[in-house]
Structures are given as structure tokens and as C-alpha cells.
Amino acid sequence: MSSVLYVCVRPERSAADAEHRSFRRGLGLAALDRIDLLHASLETVEWQQYEGFVIGGSPFNVTDAEKGEHQRAVEHDLERIAKRVLDGAATALFTCYGIGVVTRMLGGSVHTAQPEQAGATTVHLTDAGMADRLFGPSAPSMSVFTAHKESARETPPGAVLLATNPACTVQAYRVGERLYATQFHPEASPQDFADRMAVYRASGYFDPREYESTERAVLDASVEGEDLLRRFPGLIRG
């Protein structure tokens, strides 16, 4: 068993498998254990034995008006992980959909007024971000991939804003010393993100009529998310 567990919340098997590979490569780990919450609950693994968690993205949205049983169960399990981390028992990085789950759990607001189309963007580190162990080495800014329909309206109670940009006010924050949440996707390389676009071509993350030009822009992008991920295991050991 590795010390880090990848928590998958994607229904699409091909996208889930690819995201798992992306996180393993980005973290620099020879092996990365995995649980797919749409097929198994946390109780099916010894989840409390893990020192670190990385939570991937999902086509789910916290703001969805109607949620099925699977989505409600997923959100419940993600909140359980977040609470364990806030108790100081582990370290976690929640991405994209995960930041919405954590924001709501902390009493913050999630809205749909600041969506970002699929592509690369620059996020700017705050003073707290530049002083942070995980984000600081990337100061003063970093290029990352985003694609989302909802985001935190503001930094939720108890959280410290680490990264922002004009398109999306809350790009990343930290709660306590060990819970990190990002709106962007740090794990994806340009090819990874282009492959993911093909899976979600008709899901509203970009205009499908502009698929080829969007794909070219993604493949030509230079992003730094993996630098962030490569530092994450050090937080677990530190």
C-alpha cells in the first residue's frame, strides 16, 4: 500500500484511468493506490491508514439542482476525507469539483457566475500563497489548466486564499496546514487535457464547434501544475 490514495469521482472509465495515471506521474510515485467512489464507498478500503489523498475532478457539480444517490454518496465520502484532514490525521489536495464540496462543507457559497472554458490560464499567488510550502516555489504566478462550471464565491470561513485571477476569484486555498483545494487541474499535461476534452466534448466545457482550435491551444500550452504536485508528497512526510 502506498501512503497516498487517489480518490476518483469520474463516471467515465477512460477519463478516470487517465486521471489516475496523470496524478501518479505528477506526484512522482512508482505506485498510487486508487478508489472509485462511484463504484465503492470509503469503507471498502482501509482509507484511514493513508497519510495523503488526492481528489480528482468530475462532471458533477455541487450546485446541481437534482442529485442522484451516487452523487450524494460521493459528496458524503469526500466530506469525511476533508474532516479527517482537518483533524490533522492526513494531508489532502482536492481539485475542481472537490473545492466545491469542501467550500460548502465549511459554510461557504458555491456559484455559477465565474465559469472557465477548457484551456490554460495564469493564476496569481497571494502573499499567503507565496509564503505557502506547496505553492510558494511557484511564485508569483503559474500556468494551469481549468475547465469548470461553478466555483467558490469567496474563500470559505477558516480558509486562506492562495491563488486567484480575474476570471475566477478563488483558484486555490488552504485550510489549516494540510487541506488544499484548487479550482484548476494540476495533474494534467497538455496531452492529458486534450484527451480529456475528447471524452467531455459535448459536456459544455467548451464550444464543440471550436473543438479543433481549442485542442490546438491546449496542446501548445505550457503548464506548471506538475511542479505543484511533485511537492505534495513532501508535505505528507514533513
Results as ranks from 00 to 15, higher is better:
Q114A: 11
G176V: 03
A128L: 01
E116C: 11
T112R: 14
D87Q: 15
D77E: 12
A131Y: 01
Q117M: 13
F184P: 03
F145C: 02
P140D: 00
T103D: 09
D192A: 04
S143Q: 08
F94I: 12
K83R: 15
Q71V: 11
H111T: 13
M142L: 15
V102L: 12
Y205V: 10
G119H: 02
L179W: 08
K83Q: 15
K83G: 11
K83N: 14
G107W: 02
H111G: 12
L162V: 04
A90M: 04
R153N: 11
A163Q: 01
Q191I: 09
T169Q: 14
D87C: 07
D207N: 07
T91M: 08
G100L: 10
A92K: 12
R104Y: 07
D207F: 03
L125I: 05
D87T: 10
R196V: 09
S143P: 08
F206Y: 00
E187M: 12
L106A: 12
R133C: 09
S109A: 15
K83H: 14
D132L: 08
I99M: 15
T164G: 04
A167C: 10
T182M: 04
V62E: 09
G136M: 00
A198W: 03
T112K: 06
Q114N: 13
T121P: 02
G158K: 08
G204L: 09
A181P: 09
S151V: 04
F206H: 04
I99F: 14
T169G: 13
A194P: 03
M130K: 07
T63Q: 10
I99L: 13
G204N: 10
A152W: 10
